[in-house]
């Protein structure tokens, strides 16, 4: 009986989410009507465009990959009641670290270079995030604020490296030298940029799910997230779980950035990952911090992003309507009152 209750709870959450998304789509349509001189064509481009050919479809899925990693990074932290607001800087730094690693060993075999690049990405970002966790543990300095500030500073420092010491003078965008060919990830859906990192993203979601729900450390982490005093009382080493979730969260962000470089850009371009950190928070919250829920939530965001791009090319609106569409979803996705309506309906 209890099992059924929770199943119906999940169902009304899903229905509430569906309602939120439909409602947001409605607002997007309305917005396009207001802004566009050829609304029908633009709306078609927004909603159907991403599915209209392999190139668009593959690229949309490829955008979801880093969002899955940042979403997982946030889910791990938030489940532990540790608030990592430094995702932006961590993804960016991870991407840059992977690039520098690859540039340092241009003649290494492909797999070695990829592995090293990803280790570098994860380590650097884990360290950046870990600082905030450490300050929190040691002196009770709010990790939410410190991670945000550190991330802002880190992003600027990354800008310096990308446009300064590592800048490639041979191209006219602000970007580093490209990494060696053999480090590029295998494309799996040509002509799009979708590559094997998609499988890694799915694997990461499953691994994080298992870690959080089936392991010793995951249990202790969740307990600390739900109630730290209870956890200390129960004998769990609570301070450890102020730092560990931050480190894991940073590492996942870093991997997201590193995979973007290896899979998509083959170089660190100024600002290439901007937005991934913030959207990771939204993805995690839509997924209710459930690692498996992160997969569809990331796809939804990638869809909005692809829709806006397609509407820009196939219609006459600017790309930023994606931000507006996302903001509609942000506004409503946690609105308790909407879920109550669904619940009452179902009961009646």
């Amino acid at each position: 009986m209890k099992g059924r209750q929770s199943a119906s709870g999940v169902l009304s959450t899903v229905m509430g989410l569906a309602l939120t998304i439909l409602f947001s789509f409605g607002l997007v349509i309305l917005l396009i009507f207001l802004l566009s001189k050829m609304p029908a064509k633009t709306i078609y481009a927004f909603f159907i465009g991403p599915f209209s050919n392999k190139y668009y479809l593959g690229n949309m899925l490829n955008v979801a990959v880093p969002l899955i990693f940042t979403g997982l990074g946030i889910a791990v932290a938030f489940k532990s009641s540790v608030f990592n607001l430094g995702g932006e800087g961590q993804v960016y730094a991870g991407g840059l670290a992977a690039t520098i690693a690859c540039l340092a060993i241009p003649h290494a075999p492909g797999l070695v270079g990829m592995a090293l690049a990803l280790v570098a990405a994860a380590t650097v970002s884990a360290a950046i995030a870990g600082f905030s966790g450490f300050f929190r543990m040691k002196w009770d300095a709010d990790e939410m604020i410190s991670s945000f500030l550190l991330s802002a500073a880190v992003a600027l420092v990354c800008n310096y490296f990308i446009t300064g010491p590592f800048d490639d003078p041979n191209n006219n965008i602000l970007s580093t030298y490209p990494i060696a060919k053999q480090f590029g990830l295998l494309k799996i859906f040509p002509p799009s940029k979708l590559n094997v990192s998609a499988f890694l993203a799915i694997a990461a979601a499953i691994l994080v799910y298992i870690f959080m729900n089936k392991t010793h450390a995951g249990y202790e982490m969740r307990m600390c997230g739900l109630n730290r005093e209870f956890s200390r009382y129960g004998g769990i080493k609570v301070s450890r779980y102020l730092v560990l979730p931050m480190i894991l969260s940073g590492a996942l962000h870093g991997l997201g950035g590193g995979l973007m470089v290896l899979g998509t850009y083959q170089a660190a371009i100024k600002g290439f990952s901007f937005g991934m950190g913030w959207n990771g928070i939204a993805v995690a919250l839509i997924a209710r911090n459930n690692p498996l829920g992160v997969l569809p939530a990331a796809l939804l965001f990638a869809y909005l992003d692809a829709g806006a791009k397609s509407a820009m090319l196939g219609g006459d609106v600017t790309f930023e309507i994606a931000s507006i569409a996302q903001s509609f979803i942000f506004y409503l996705v946690t609105a308790q009152a909407l879920y109550d309506i669904v619940r009452k309906r179902r009961r009646a």
Binding site: M223, L226, E229, F230, S231, G235
Partner: peptide, 15 residues
Amino acid sequence: RGSSLSSTVTENLIV
């Protein structure tokens, strides 16, 4: 302190 209200009875029992 004595319980984690949103956790299951089992999770509370094994802390």
